[in-house]
Design a binder for these strands. Structure first.
Length: 430
RNA sequence: GAGGCCGUAGCUCAAUGGUAGAGCACCGGGCUGUGGCCCCGGGUGUUGCGGGUUCGAGCCCCGUCGGCCUCCCCA
């Protein structure tokens, strides 16, 4: 084969499409019910936007973006996440003056140049949800509930997902923790891995997230970030977790949870899926209270999360396409004409049936009825319409139920009424 | 970006360094007015690609591309 898809980029075959579309629709419907508004942002932004928001020294910006110069020599970057673009959109269109809270969601592909493995692609879809406004813990818990409800909806199983939560503190209290980290890590510098030695100066919080044994040992002896929370952050977090408990929502307080994007402050969280291997974060998010202001906008607290579509599907069904979705690949009706006249008439019939909302496949083949029925069987058609010379003459058509094996002849002009009554054409989209 | 394992037909997988195979799928026929079953026939292939070693390479070596796993990072 001469050409193959670019590494880490995947085709969606029909089974995949049904799978992903099904999940996107579940998320979309749920978010609309919570009165979030769907938006679309461009695939590309000026590179500068991502450097300013995600952070210049983050891994994402330093080594994972698809960045290039266009014909005007402008530096452009394929979006590695959606929050930056949404904030830009809000400010560019002055949406921040509209009544609060602002609630948006966006579904689309993101791009990161990482080494592909299970659950990690270079082009992957995110369901991105953003909430901007006067952020009380109630709103935050509401948002967490939305994430959890969406994730469990397709399977109705909550046990597939676990919520981990932490607070990074605000701009008042985080510097103290950062200083403490730097000082105490400095004294144990020799036990740290090379990347962490580097992180010590550039982004010490990330050492907390390191998986190297040596670093983990050091981290274990540190005081948790919660010791440094200011009164306001502490109070906020306690109310939030209290609400979760009152709602019987399971969660794990993980004081070592950090995020890879610099704009996060205060509450952050990850939802991990089962059976996913190393890449098990299905959903992640948190607050970015200062982001809008840093971009020259108003002081507007905000929070959001993103669900990784492919990972979500993996956690639910593995690589498989579940039977209930596979079924939807099959046509309800298959039209089989016999002879040239029947084919001509058939063009009218199938068109009319489709206009009435029925899902119809046609087989304009020069084969015998036996062969055509065999095709019908392979296609999994529920019912077959047979139109031959005899039927044409009499103005009738045959309806054969493939499962029952029964067959009826019916007047052409009564066909549509009859089918509409019988067939409950549900959601044809997916 | 680093390390390990892997790459044979559309799919799942065989083949001691000695003529590339099986099952499923697919195509044609038995079968031009009634499917599922059955029977017959067909291998559909640049063994990922490019070099090298060898009388001879799917097998050994090097490179490369791709996949999986781990690190890293995150959705």
């Amino acid at each position: 084969m001469k050409f193959q898809a670019v590494r880490g980029f995947k085709d969606w075959l029909p089974e995949d499409f049904f799978k992903y579309h099904h999940l996107m629709e579940i998320a979309r419907n749920y978010l609309i019910r919570a009165n979030f508004k769907e938006v679309k942002i461009p695939l590309l932004e000026k590179t500068e936007l991502f450097m300013r928001t995600i952070g210049e020294v983050t891994d994402i910006v330093q080594k994972e973006t698809y960045t290039f110069q266009d014909r005007n020599q402008d530096f452009l970057t394929l979006r590695p996440e959606a929050t930056a673009g949404i904030c830009r959109m809000i400010l560019e269109h002055g949406l921040h003056v509209k009544p609060k809270p602002l609630k948006f969601f966006f579904i689309g592909p993101m791009f990161r140049h990482e080494r592909p493995q299970k659950g990690r692609l270079r082009e992957f879809y995110q369901i991105d949800v953003e909430f901007l406004g006067n952020l009380t813990p109630y709103y935050e818990v509401e948002l967490l509930q939305i994430a959890l409800e969406i994730l469990k909806k397709p399977s109705n199983r909550e046990d597939l997902f676990t919520l981990e939560i932490n607070s990074l503190g605000c701009r008042e209290c985080r510097p103290a923790f950062r200083d403490y980290l730097q000082v105490s890590l400095e004294s144990e510098r020799e036990s740290l891995c090379d990347t962490c030695k580097d992180r010590l100066y550039r982004n010490p919080l990330r050492v907390l997230d390191c998986k190297q044994e040596g670093c983990k040992e050091v981290v274990k002896r540190l005081k948790p970030i919660s010791d440094f929370w200011c009164g306001s952050c502490r109070g906020h977090f306690n109310i939030l977790t209290g609400l979760l408990r009152a709602l019987d929502r399971d969660f794990v307080f993980n004081p070592f949870l950090v995020r890879g994007l610099d704009y996060y402050v205060r509450t952050i969280f990850e939802i991990k899926g089962k059976g996913l291997g190393a890449q098990d974060t299905v959903c992640a998010g948190g607050r970015y209270d200062y982001l809008l202001k840093d971009l020259g906008g108003p002081d507007l607290p905000a929070t959001g999360f993103a669900i990784g579509l492919e990972r979500w599907a993996l956690s639910l069904w593995g690589e498989e396409c579940p039977e209930f979705l596979r079924k939807k690949l099959r046509p309800d009706l298959l039209f089989i004409p016999l002879g040239e006249e029947a084919k001509k008439e058939g063009l009218k019939v199938v068109s009319e049936l489709r206009n009435q909302g029925l899902r119809v496949e046609s087989l304009f083949e020069d084969k015998g009825l036996k062969a055509l029925l065999r095709e019908a069987d392979k296609l999994g058609a529920k019912q077959v319409l047979i139109l031959g010379e005899e039927e044409l003459k009499e103005g009738v058509i045959l309806i054969k139920d493939m499962q029952e094996g029964t067959q009826q002849r019916i007047k052409m002009d009564k066909l549509i009424g009859r089918l509409k009554k019988e067939q409950r054409v549900e959601d044809l989209s997916c």
